[in-house]
Design a protein around this nucleic acid. Structure first.
Length: 200
DNA sequence: GGCCAGGTGTAAA
DNA sequence: TTTACACATGGC
């Protein structure tokens, strides 16, 4: 049993997950649509999110997304569930991004974790998913897959911050700052792919 | 038909 | 600070 995160990381790397996936794992990493996907996938399978994203074709840039009316958006994101709350939250978020940062590119550079979590509909996990995969920052995502994997190694914590610290600390020490973002993105991607393959 | 999925906000103890 | 519950569709 590997109890250190480095051991678990090496374990996954040895399995050669992500062989057929892009290095950044999340589809279209670095784009605004990752922000949308991060909220749509809350307690929802990615398959259902894909249906919604297809319906949103043509509205996946910040400016066009913010031009949608709530009723249309609800219809488009219906397949991914909780649409009555996700639609208004997504719209408000897109307005706030425009008002606060003007463009998505500026948002990528300047947004803080604190600002994200203050938005209605964004908790710790969604904030980290947005930071990591939309803004390309050095932040590790902790989702149910991650907790399941760690539990299979006999590792459990109470709080999100504890999981995050466990995952990040040793890797931050081991790898140079320049490589961290890719390490975290790759690590989280491997965790999800491993779950899908092994079904923990 | 029942259970669950790449969570979050709110209310009540 | 913790716990319980609503939110909703689609796949198995």
């Amino acid at each position: 049993m590997k109890k250190s995160v480095l051991g678990i990381y090496d374990f996954l790397v040895a399995k050669d997950l992500l062989k057929h996936s892009p290095p950044l794992w999340w589809p279209n990493a670095g784009k605004f649509e990752v922000v949308v996907g991060a909220i749509l996938t809350q307690n929802t399978t990615w398959k259902n999110v894909e249906k919604s994203l297809e319906n949103l074709e043509g509205f996946l840039l910040l400016e066009s997304f913010a031009s949608l009316d709530e009723l249309s958006l609800k219809q488009m994101i219906k397949p991914s569930g909780f649409y009555n709350q996700k639609a208004p939250r997504l719209l408000k978020l897109s307005y706030n991004i425009q008002n606060e940062f003007n463009t998505f590119e500026q948002f990528q550079k300047e947004v803080s974790r604190k600002w994200l979590i203050a938005q209605k509909g964004i908790g710790e996990e969604s904030a980290d998913a947005i930071l990591c995969y939309a803004c390309l920052r050095d932040e590790m995502v902790v989702d149910s897959y991650t907790k399941r994997l760690l539990k299979s190694f006999g590792i459990e914590f109470k709080k999100y911050a504890e999981y995050k610290a466990f995952l990040e600390t040793e890797l931050r020490e081991k790898y140079p700052k320049k490589e961290l973002f890719e390490i975290f993105a790759h690590f989280h991607g491997m965790i999800v792919e491993y779950n899908k393959k092994v079904k923990l």
